[in-house]
């Protein structure tokens, strides 16, 4: 089980959270102008690195706030919990 540090509530069990996927995937500035290939790229394609990965979590059972962490996809080490919009 992961032990995830919520920026407001401190470290909690993974079961208190829901996963939100990769962080920083921007909504297309002009969605009407995006063709099918670019739209599916936006919807489905993620970077999926082996190593450090920026991702979103929401503390469902606690403060119900979304935040960003940096997780290592091999060691599962988690660093830099921060509110959305703040960079490290």
């Amino acid at each position: 089980m992961l032990y995830i540090p919520c920026p407001w509530c401190g470290p909690r069990d993974e079961t208190e959270f829901r996963y939100g996927g990769e962080a920083g995937v921007a909504y297309p500035a002009d969605p009407d102008a995006v063709d099918d290939a670019a739209w599916s790229e936006y919807l489905f394609v993620r970077s999926n690195p082996k190593g450090w990965f920026e991702e979103r979590w929401v503390h469902t059972s606690g403060c119900r706030r979304w935040f960003t962490v940096r997780r290592h996809t091999v060691s599962y080490e988690i660093r830099d919990p921060r509110p959305i919009g703040e960079s490290t």
């Binding site: 509530c9 208190e16 059972s61 606690g62 403060c63």
Partner: peptide, 10 residues
């Protein structure tokens, strides 16, 4: 105070 799960109940 805190919000958490106690016996799986919020």
């Amino acid at each position: 105070c805190t919000q958490t799960a106690l016996a799986k109940a919020q």
